[in-house]
């Protein structure tokens, strides 16, 4: 798999990208971190299949950190949620 060094379809700078992502509502940010963790797990599986054991192990461990970060963000969201006007579908 080729890892690009830029976000495909985004022409701004990294700082601009971070501004957009970082400003997302915390529950959305939590979901984004969780999906990022899922993506890292997928990469870890791929490397495991290719016998890159050390890399796979590191990626799995990193995905855990991201899952934890996602939940931390979710807890932050829970604190803010009552004070925000959120449409409940």
């Amino acid at each position: 798999m080729k890892h690009p060094d830029k976000v495909v379809g985004f022409n701004g700078s990294l700082d601009e990208l971070i501004d957009s992502i970082g400003n997302l509502r915390y529950d959305v940010l939590a979901k984004l971190l969780e999906k990022l963790a899922d993506n890292i797990v997928m990469q870890a599986k791929g490397d495991e299949k290719r016998d890159n054991a050390q890399l796979a192990k590191r990626l799995y461990a990193h995905s855990e950190t991201l899952y934890k970060a996602a939940e931390e963000m979710e807890k932050i969201w829970k604190l803010c949620e009552p004070y925000m006007n959120v449409d409940k579908k």
Binding site: Y67, K68, E71, E72
Partner: peptide
């Protein structure tokens, strides 16, 4: 109150 990853870490 937490998922397994969070609790465990």
């Amino acid at each position: 109150g937490s998922g397994m990853c969070y609790l465990r870490t």
